[in-house]
Simulated assay, not measured.
Amino acid sequence: MTMANAFSETSGATPELAARQHWMSVLARADINALESYWRNLAQQPSYRCLRKPEIGLAMVRGRAGGTGAPFNLGEVTVTRCVVELETGAQGFGYVTGRSRRHAELAALFDGLMQQDSDQHGAALIQPLHRQWLARREQVSRKAAATKVNFMTMVRGS
Rank of each mutant, 00 (worst) to 15 (best):
L86C: 10
S100F: 05
A123S: 12
T88K: 05
V96F: 08
D117S: 14
L125C: 08
G94C: 11
H121T: 02
Q127V: 15
S118M: 11
G92C: 07
V79F: 00
L113P: 10
A123Y: 07
V84N: 01
R101K: 15
S100L: 05
V79D: 02
F93S: 00
E85N: 02
G98I: 13
V96N: 04
L86V: 07
S118F: 14
E76I: 01
T80H: 09
T80D: 08
G75N: 07
A108S: 12
F93L: 15
L109P: 08
Q127M: 12
Y95K: 03
L134P: 00
T78A: 15
P128L: 03
L129I: 03
A104K: 05
I126N: 06
V96Q: 05
H103G: 12
T97W: 10
L109V: 06
V84T: 03
D111A: 04
L125I: 07
G112F: 01
I126C: 09
L129W: 02
S118A: 14
G112N: 02
L109I: 15
R81A: 05
A90Y: 04
H130P: 00
A90Q: 14
D119A: 15
D119H: 11
L86A: 09
T80S: 13
Q120M: 11
Q132V: 10
Q91N: 04
R101P: 00
A108L: 08
G98N: 12
E105H: 08
H130F: 12
R99D: 14
Q132S: 15
G122D: 03
G98R: 13
L106S: 08
C82T: 01
T97Y: 15
F93M: 11
S100G: 12
V84L: 13
G89N: 09
T97V: 12
D119I: 00
V83A: 11
A124D: 14
E76Y: 04
L113F: 03
N73C: 06
T78M: 11
N73R: 04
V77Y: 11
A107E: 04
T78N: 03
F93G: 00
A124F: 00
W133A: 11
H103S: 12
T78Y: 00
T78S: 15
H130R: 07
T80G: 09
F110N: 02
L129E: 06
G75H: 10
V84M: 02
R81N: 07
V96S: 05
E105S: 07
A123G: 04
V77D: 01
S100I: 08
L129M: 10
L109S: 06
Q120N: 13
V83C: 04
A104H: 08
A104C: 11
L86R: 04
G122I: 01
G98Q: 12
F110L: 02
Q115N: 06
A123H: 13
L109M: 15
W133P: 00
D117P: 03
T88V: 05
R101L: 13
H130A: 14
Q115C: 02
V79L: 05
P128V: 03
G89Q: 09
P128K: 02
L125S: 07
T80W: 09
